[in-house]
Design a protein around this nucleic acid. Structure first.
Lengths: 219, 219
DNA sequence: CATGCATTCTATAGACCTATAGAATTTCCG
DNA sequence: CGGAAATTCTATAGGTCTATAGAATGCATG
């Protein structure tokens, strides 16, 4: 470890975290060796311990890296002054975009974090459940503002959003040709309007149009 | 291996698969040792190789066990003569009930199957994607029968159902007090009707507004 | 009970893996 | 340039793991 504030050290450590993310994402925590990680960043196995006290510490850093600004962004969305629909869509966009940018680290966070020691896991958990709580709050606001049916269970709703996003996150990681924008629209549409045909049953024809084509513009 | 048709052998092998499922689910494939598995079924590490050629074979059997009658049931639902809503609810029920009964093996199938050798993975994949295709077909029928909006993307829809079910599957596994029936109802309701309030007429302007506040970039 | 098959055990080879110690090399800066 | 600090390397101790071989035990049946 360097004794002074140091630039190269920070940069190399970041590289180490990214390498670990890639390897863990591919082979899982226990399936990866420190040799794999070191080789991917072009150093020898032993040298990795200059940057991490242990393999476990590397996992912790990867998870943190995966989730950090993901939660920050969610804070921004929750605090912003937009109607419910916009917040929901922004959430989905943020979630899925994160998958594109940080797919490995996020996958590691989702799949491997349980192998962390208790203490670290709790720290991360508070971040993660902070995320879900923010989302839940957004739904509660949506109910209060009248945008959503008041019969909905906000906890369930938040979980459902995360579930759908994660399912598509996996698809996105595997197939880079999937159109992110298309998925975002469809997710939002599903969550707001459901799949059911309404013409015959319900009288509010307006909703059909809104449902059919959410009118979204790029900036 | 026994040379004749044998009862005890089959029974013990089944026990071995269940033990492996439990251990793999808890610690992941690479995190589990054959000693863990053997101990859980009350035999010694070496004896396990009487039932499996390798640890990998055990994983394959667990995955197969997890998914098998799950797919069978889906076949039944798809072939049955029910309206769309009933089929959807039956699917969700089947999916979530499977999580209750076979939570470990299903979790292993979802999380660890990629560690199988190519050949086995392909066999399983054809089963798994058979499942998704059946679900897709059900949605297509739903569109044709007029139960669903004809703008929906059936591939997307099937993926979304699976995503939601898996998210709740995890919750169900962790917390046995969750009311399965309640979740089933809420999932079905969400998928059919969405969360949006319908009495009030939604202004399309809201949806346009969304655009300004998103930082999505199309590449 | 004796024979043969089924099941489980013990012991171990051989591979691989983490983490550390200390040497070697590179980089920085006066 | 010269020395100090930073970075990487080599080598290895000590541990765990898979898979196999061969011995021991259980069990059914004639």
């Amino acid at each position: 470890m360097p004794e002074t504030e140091n630039n190269k050290y920070q940069h190399q450590r970041q590289q180490a975290i990214r390498s670990a993310a890639a390897v863990f994402a591919e082979k899982g925590f226990h399936g990866s060796s420190t040799k794999d990680i070191a080789e991917r960043m072009g150093i020898k196995q032993g040298s990795l311990y200059y940057y991490f006290k242990s393999k476990e510490e590397a996992l912790g850093e990867v998870c943190l890296f995966g989730i950090t600004d993901y939660v920050d962004r969610m804070n921004g969305i929750a605090a912003s002054d937009q109607p419910f629909e916009a917040k929901l869509m922004a959430t989905i966009t943020s979630h899925l975009s994160s998958y594109r940018e940080k797919n490995e680290a996020l996958k590691v966070y989702n799949d491997e974090r349980l192998y962390l020691p208790e203490a670290k896991r709790i720290t991360l958990k508070s971040l993660g459940s902070g995320y879900r709580q923010l989302l839940e709050m957004i739904f509660e606001e949506g109910v209060q503002s009248g945008a959503l049916r008041d019969s909905i269970d906000c906890h369930f709703a938040a979980q459902a959003v995360i579930g759908i996003c994660n399912a598509w996150g996996d698809v996105i990681v595997r197939d880079p040709d999937v159109d992110l924008f298309d998925i975002i629209q469809k997710c939002t549409d599903l969550l707001l309007n459901g799949f059911r045909e309404r013409r015959k049953i319900q009288r509010t024809d307006d909703d059909i149009d809104v449902a059919g084509n959410l009118n979204y513009q790029k900036n």
